[in-house]
C-alpha cells in the first residue's frame, strides 16, 4: 500500500501504473469489450478506413481492427509477462548463486552465460521455433530462455559487490545459513535492479515478438498479436495507415507504460536512490 502511494506521487510512474492496469483490464475483458468477432471475415469490406461501424477500420480480410487490437492485448501482454517471468526466474537464481559462491560455480555459470550471449538471439529462437511449432507458448518460452543472461549478470554483479558488505559479514558471524544470506539478506538489497530489469523486460519481450513477426516467425495468424498485425499492415502502410498506426501505438504505449512503471519502482524500491 505504501509502495502504491509512493508510485502515485510521481507523475511518470503514476501514468505508467494507470496504463498497465488499464491494459490488464482490457486483456481480461477482451470478449466483453470487442464490438465484433475478431475472426469474422467480410470480403466485401476490406481495408476500410475508420468509421462509425468500424472505429479503427478493417484489415485486409475485412475484420474489425479494434476487436483484433483488443484481443491482441491479451496475446501480447501474455507473451511479455510470461517470457519475462521465465527469464527473471532463471537469471536471478543463476546470477545469485554465481555471485555468492564464486569460484568454480561462478566460472561454470558465467561460461554458460558467455556461450549463450555469443549466439545472436534470433538464431537461437529460430532453431527452437523450427523444432517446435510457433505457438504462443513456445514463443514465450523461447524468448524467456534466451533473455535471462542480462539479469543473471546484473544479479551476479550485485551479489559480488554485496557479499563482502558489512551486513552480510554480520549475518555470517551470527551463523545464518547460506540460503538465508542469499535470499534473505542479499537478494532484498539486490532486488531493485532485478525489478527494473523485469519491467523493462516486459516491454522488450513485446518488442521481440513484433520483431519475430516481422521475420515471419512470431505468433501466427489468425491469432492476433500486435506484432503480427503490425507486420501484416506494413505493406499497405500508405493507403491503410490504420493497420499499422494503431498496433504500433498499442506497442508504443504499452512498452512505455511498463518502462515508466519500472523507473518509478526503482525510485521507490532502491534504498540507495532514496533521497533522504
Amino acid at each position: 500500500m505504501k509502495l502504491l502511494k509512493e508510485l502515485m506521487k510521481n507523475p511518470m510512474s503514476c501514468t505508467g501504473l494507470l496504463f498497465v492496469v488499464a491494459l490488464a483490464l482490457i486483456a481480461i475483458f477482451a470478449k466483453e469489450l470487442s464490438p465484433y468477432d475478431p475472426q469474422a471475415i467480410d470480403t466485401y469490406h476490406i481495408l476500410e478506413a475508420p468509421s462509425q461501424s468500424h472505429l479503427l477500420g478493417t484489415d485486409a480480410l475485412g475484420r474489425d481492427v479494434l476487436s483484433r487490437l483488443i484481443y491482441g492485448t491479451r496475446i501480447s501482454l501474455l507473451v511479455g509477462i510470461v517470457a519475462v517471468g521465465i527469464a527473471t526466474a532463471i537469471g536471478t537464481v543463476l546470477g545469485a548463486i554465481a555471485g555468492f559462491y564464486g569460484g568454480v560455480v561462478d566460472m561454470v555459470i558465467m561460461r554458460l552465460v558467455d556461450v549463450m550471449l555469443c549466439f545472436p538471439t534470433i538464431f537461437l529462437i529460430m532453431a527452437v521455433i523450427a523444432f517446435l511449432e510457433p505457438s504462443i507458448w513456445n514463443i514465450m518460452a523461447v524468448i524467456g530462455l534466451t533473455s535471462w543472461m542480462g539479469v543473471a549478470r546484473l544479479v551476479r554483479a550485485e551479489f559480488l559487490s554485496l557479499r563482502s558488505r558489512d551486513f552480510v559479514l554480520a549475518a555470517r558471524v551470527i551463523g545464518a545459513s547460506d540460503w538465508r544470506i542469499l535470499f534473505g539478506h542479499i537478494l532484498p538489497n539486490a532486488i531493485a535492479p532485478v525489478i527494473v530489469a523485469a519491467t523493462l523486460g516486459v516491454g522488450s519481450a513485446i518488442l521481440t515478438e513484433s520483431a519475430l513477426s516481422f521475420l515471419g516467425i512470431g505468433v501466427q495468424p489468425p491469432t492476433p498479436s500486435w506484432g503480427n498485425m503490425l507486420t501484416a499492415g506494413k505493406d499497405n502502410i500508405e493507403i491503410a495507415w490504420w493497420l499499422s498506426v494503431f498496433p504500433g501505438l498499442a506497442i508504443l504505449i504499452t512498452v512505455l507504460a511498463y518502462n515508466l512503471l519500472g523507473e518509478g519502482l526503482r525510485e521507490v524500491l532502491d534504498p540507495r536512490t532514496k533521497r533522504s
Binding site: 475472426q39 471475415i41 480480410l61 521455433i129 523450427a130 510457433p134 516467425i217 495468424p221
Partner: peptide, 24 residues
Amino acid sequence: DRTAQIIQWRLKQVGIEMKIRTIE
C-alpha cells in the same frame, strides 16, 4: 495465409473445425 483464414471461416459455418499451421 489469407486464403487459409477465409477457408477456416467458411468451414466453421458448415461445422468443420480447421486449424492452420504455418511452417517455415
